[in-house]
Every structure is written in structure tokens, then in C-alpha cells.
Amino acid sequence: MKAQEVPQDDNSTYHGEKRAVYATTKDGDYGVVASSGWDVEAEATQQAVAELQRLADEAYAACETGKCSPLEYHMYAKRLDLLSLSQATGLFQWRIKRHFNVKNFNKLSDKLLDRYADVMGITISELKKLPQKES
């Protein structure tokens, strides 16, 4: 890629930051060019973010009607899934799945709740409820 061909698409996902891309000058010499982003990459990032948002929204709606515990919502909201939450907490997936059930979740000890809250970087009281819906 030539230096002048390095995309400068001002990706919103960069928040004004720039990324180092290797490209050649007109003499063919390589160097670093700061890029403000490439639409192709931005779309892929946004697609992944949107998918997690969709899962979080679905869980939010289900929690509101009592079909699942707030744990499931917070998991997706913190960009985790069953596998990564299991790996981060050291709890078996089947056990976490049980905690998606409101009845089971309400019975959890503070110790176990803290294990979840800690890997998500929130407090136990935040974990126990759904956040206010953003308008």
C-alpha cells in the first residue's frame, strides 16, 4: 500500500485517535503512516459491537418480564458470553446458566455475587438490578 492510499476515513470508533499503518513512499520505502481509520474495519467493529448490544437488549427485555436474572443482561453488557464469563470467574458454564434463572439468582450468596461483580467491574447492588433504560 502506498502512503497516499492509506485510508483516512475518520472512524468514529477511534474517537479521534490514529492507528499506525505500514505503507510505502513514492520511492518504495516503508514507514509508518498514521491513519484515522478505514471504513471497512469500522464496519466490522460496529457489527461486533451491535451484535453484543442486541444480545444485551434481548436479555434486558427478558429480565424485565422476569424470564431471566439481571446476570445475563450484565454479562452481555460487559461484552462477555457464557464461555468467557466461565473462564473469568472459574465457574462451570452449567452453574452460571442456573444463575440466569431468577429464583436461583436471588438465592446467591454475596460471596458468589461478588465473584461475578468483580470480573464485570460493578458492585453487587448494580449486579442485582437492571440499569435505568437509556432514552
Binding site: 500500500m1 492509506v6 492507528r19 499506525a20 499503518v21 505500514y22 505503507a23 516503508y30 514507514g31 491513519s35 478505514w38 471497512v40 474495519e41 464496519e43 466490522a44 467493529t45 457489527q47 461486533a48 451484535e51
Partner: peptide, 28 residues
């Protein structure tokens, strides 16, 4: 299918590859 394809692009271009999945860094 769409997520899978998008995932390939992210692995190739997002943070820390220097573009084109490290091929340009290596060319350099």
C-alpha cells in the same frame, strides 16, 4: 455467516496489525 465474515476482517485489520494482518510490517 455475516458475523463470521466480519470477524475475519476484525482479526485482520483491527488494533495492532499494521494493516493487512501484519503482511505490511513483514514486507517492511
Amino acid at each position: 455467516a455475516r458475523l463470521f465474515l466480519g470477524h475475519i476482517v476484525r482479526m485482520q485489520e483491527e488494533i495492532g496489525t499494521g494493516g493487512a494482518g501484519f503482511r505490511y510490517i513483514y514486507a517492511s
